[in-house]
């Protein structure tokens, strides 16, 4: 089986300071990988380097494209990369406002990616928008409301719908449950798990919440000071951490 994403020796520097370095992994179709670490550990830098928001200083990010097979997204042309990020990739921001158009209705937000890839039939765009609202558990009577009238949890679900409507194969998520209260988090996690399985999505989830990765991620990568200090099966890394930093991280979680 060809990995969906092959990350080879990726590094991103901020001047002399290390953003992240020597990152290597393969992600296979249907796999969900979590990246954990404290603030400043380089996990968001890594995610943005992989998703094309930042240009890595070194290394390759090879994505198995539908048309041409594995291609290095770092060196591919910008139009190709932007096309990829509208079709096969999705990016869920921590703050829904960064990922939504706040002045455009919920339906318009979901429809944007469809229109971007050439859908020109209002009726079918609207139908698919309504369908996706349902899938993320938003009443379709809210289709013409702007996201500014939505709660935080609804905004986050709308952002997910907007991203998944074109049937991407790889989803990048940056703290998708951050800033939401726990009951809303649980609902979102449940939704994400269902969508991941239904659509056969691969995902890379950055979070500092170990409970989130335990429920969502198959695999875990632990970062500290820009380096990957440990990686492996999620429950193995959490229950039998090998690296000192991971042990500290796991033992620092407050028990409920």
């Amino acid at each position: 089986m060809t990995p969906l994403l092959q990350v080879k020796n990726v590094a991103k520097m901020y001047g002399a300071r290390i953003g992240c370095t020597e990152v290597n992994f393969d992600l296979y179709p249907g796999e969900v990988m979590g990246i954990v670490g404290e603030s400043g550990s380089g996990k968001s830098t890594l995610l943005n380097s992989l998703a094309g928001h930042l240009t890595p200083d070194r290394g390759e990010v090879i994505f198995d494209t539908r048309a041409d097979g594995p291609v290095d997204t770092v060196t591919m042309s910008e139009p190709q990369r932007r096309m990829l990020s509208r079709t096969d990739w999705a990016f869920v921001h921590q703050h829904a406002r960064d990922g939504l158009r706040m002045s455009v209705s919920a339906g318009g937000n979901i429809g944007e990616r469809l229109m971007a890839v050439g859908d020109r039939h209002y009726g079918s765009i609207r139908e698919r928008a309504a369908d996706w609202l349902g899938r993320v558990e938003i009443a379709d009577s809210r289709i013409d409301d702007r996201p500014s009238a939505f709660s935080g949890g609804m905004q986050q679900r709308l952002q997910i719908a907007r991203n998944l409507v074109t049937g991407p194969r790889l989803v990048f998520m940056d703290e998708p449950t951050g800033g939401l209260d726990v009951s809303v988090q649980a609902r979102l996690l449940d939704l994400l798990r269902g969508l991941v399985r239904e659509m056969g999505l691969s995902a890379i989830i950055v979070t500092h919440d170990l409970a989130v990765v335990r429920l969502l991620a198959d695999r875990l990568m632990v970062m500290k000071d820009g380096h990957v200090v440990e990686s492996g099966l999620t429950d193995q890394v959490l229950d039998d951490p090998q690296h000192g930093y991971t042990q500290l991280l796991v033992s620092s979680v407050l028990q409920v």
């Binding site: 158009r101 339906g107 429809g111 944007e112 229109m115 971007a116």
Partner: peptide, 10 residues
């Protein structure tokens, strides 16, 4: 990338 123009019409 003109999808956004149609968002306005939508």
């Amino acid at each position: 990338e003109y999808g956004l123009m149609h968002v306005k019409l939508y």
